[in-house]
Amino acid sequence: MSALVWTAKDTADWLTGLDERLEIVEVPQDPLSDPRLGEVKVLIPPLMRNAADEAFNLTSLLARAKSLEYVQALSAGVDNIAHAVPEGVLLCSVRGAYDELMAELLLTGILTIYKEIPHYVRVQEERTWAPSQVRVVQGKTVLYVGYGSIAQCLERYLEPFKVRTLKVARTKRGDVASLDELPELLPQADIVVLLTPLTDETRGLVNADFLARMKPGSLLVNGARGACVDTDALIAATRERDIQAFLDVTDPEPLPPEHPLWRAPGVFITPHIGSFTADNQARCFHVVRENLTTWINGGRPKNRVEHGY
């Protein structure tokens, strides 16, 4: 068996020396007109972060790649790819590649809010000595909404703080509750960490009712997708119920300069930097190389996407 692999621009070097049966070629500049499009067995598309990436017409490309068997995403979330992958074509993510990066950022976000770091940044710029009372994470209750590998990593990082942990996932298992049990768990949590994939079920999950069930003054941490949160409802909750938030993702994204979320009280935003590190490609392509090797040998690649994630 031999296979033509089209990989995103500037990524072929990460796949050198992989397997002689894999012909690695970077996606041509005009892929829809390329005569070899019909031969492509594996596609590794670029990261589809925002509307600017629509120049890469993934839907048309996948529809015309008649020999396509396997799409390998370069991200842990596949909400911007899954809809375009034809039925019968394998889709895999790199879930797990960024667990430590994301968990570190989310832990930083929690401590940033609890220790009033935004306040101290402002007063340092003003050269003002202005103490403000801070909070302790120790002993708080943390609710994970979306208990996957990132949540498990963050849970380990929070163990020294002796927090109480509540867990929710799409389906109930062991000590992990189902989404149906969220209403009774939300009022117990001091910190709610959102790590769900973006699906029809989770779009707008954090709405006015969700936020009304959270404790006044509690903290929402979003490391999932911006569209999992109703932005207007969150802004209202920050003003009416003192809900605070650390957001690495927003809706819309990028967030326009005039958007009121920037000025919402108790909100700290980072611009989708969870995996934005110098070694992120090395982490990502470690998974990609392993999956391609498994696939070409007839095995079952990991992180297969089913039911949208």
Score class of each variant (00 low, 15 high):
residue 281 Q to V: 04
residue 225 R to H: 06
residue 272 H to M: 07
residue 293 T to D: 14
residue 275 S to W: 00
residue 67 S to H: 13
residue 230 D to V: 02
residue 165 T to S: 11
residue 59 T to R: 15
residue 144 Y to K: 04
residue 160 P to E: 15
residue 107 L to C: 08
residue 28 P to K: 06
residue 35 P to V: 09
residue 304 R to H: 09
residue 119 H to F: 09
residue 137 V to S: 02
residue 82 A to V: 04
residue 211 L to Y: 01
residue 82 A to F: 03
residue 180 D to P: 01
residue 62 L to I: 07
residue 140 K to P: 01
residue 285 F to K: 00
residue 73 A to F: 01
residue 151 A to N: 04
residue 190 D to R: 08
residue 157 Y to C: 03
residue 277 T to V: 15
residue 192 V to G: 00
residue 210 F to E: 01
residue 282 A to W: 13
residue 278 A to D: 15
residue 177 A to Q: 03
residue 27 V to A: 05
residue 40 V to G: 02
residue 153 C to H: 08
residue 67 S to Y: 09
residue 242 D to I: 08
residue 184 E to C: 08
residue 1 M to S: 15
residue 260 P to R: 12
residue 243 I to K: 03
residue 56 F to E: 07
residue 67 S to I: 05
residue 12 A to C: 09
residue 47 L to P: 02
residue 146 G to Q: 02
residue 150 I to M: 08
residue 34 D to F: 03
residue 182 L to G: 01
residue 234 L to R: 06
residue 66 K to D: 12
residue 79 D to M: 08
residue 148 G to T: 05
residue 143 L to S: 01
residue 178 S to L: 11
residue 117 I to A: 10
residue 250 T to F: 05
residue 263 R to S: 14
residue 46 P to W: 06
residue 94 V to L: 02
residue 260 P to F: 05
residue 10 D to R: 12
residue 268 F to S: 10
residue 132 S to Y: 15
residue 269 I to F: 11
residue 29 Q to D: 12
residue 26 E to K: 04
residue 173 R to Y: 13
residue 126 E to Q: 15
residue 51 A to S: 13
residue 34 D to P: 02
residue 119 H to N: 14
residue 29 Q to F: 09
residue 261 L to R: 03
residue 300 R to H: 15
residue 48 M to Y: 08
residue 299 G to M: 12
residue 148 G to Y: 05
residue 64 R to D: 10
residue 201 E to V: 07
residue 107 L to Q: 12
residue 151 A to K: 01
residue 286 H to A: 13
residue 226 G to P: 02
residue 77 G to F: 00
residue 49 R to V: 15
residue 124 Q to H: 14
residue 129 W to K: 13
residue 147 Y to D: 01
residue 298 G to W: 10
residue 150 I to K: 02
residue 123 V to E: 08
residue 267 V to S: 03
residue 107 L to Y: 10
residue 66 K to E: 09
residue 37 L to P: 00
residue 17 G to E: 12
residue 3 A to M: 14
residue 78 V to A: 05
residue 107 L to G: 06
residue 236 A to I: 08
residue 140 K to C: 03
residue 309 Y to M: 06
residue 281 Q to A: 07
residue 207 N to H: 07
residue 173 R to T: 10
residue 259 H to Q: 11
residue 103 A to L: 03
residue 45 P to A: 13
residue 291 N to S: 04
residue 174 G to P: 05
residue 5 V to M: 06
residue 62 L to W: 04
residue 223 G to A: 04
residue 28 P to S: 09
residue 92 C to F: 00
residue 178 S to M: 08
residue 11 T to G: 06
residue 68 L to W: 02
residue 210 F to P: 00
residue 2 S to E: 15
residue 308 G to N: 11
residue 308 G to D: 03
residue 285 F to A: 00
residue 34 D to M: 07
residue 46 P to F: 05
residue 188 Q to S: 07
residue 141 T to A: 06
residue 275 S to I: 04
residue 78 V to T: 07
residue 269 I to C: 05
residue 220 L to Q: 03
residue 6 W to C: 02
residue 273 I to D: 10
residue 60 S to F: 11
residue 302 K to H: 11
residue 249 V to Q: 04
residue 285 F to P: 00
residue 280 N to T: 13
residue 158 L to H: 02
residue 208 A to E: 10
residue 228 C to M: 09
residue 147 Y to V: 01
residue 163 V to N: 08
residue 209 D to Q: 15
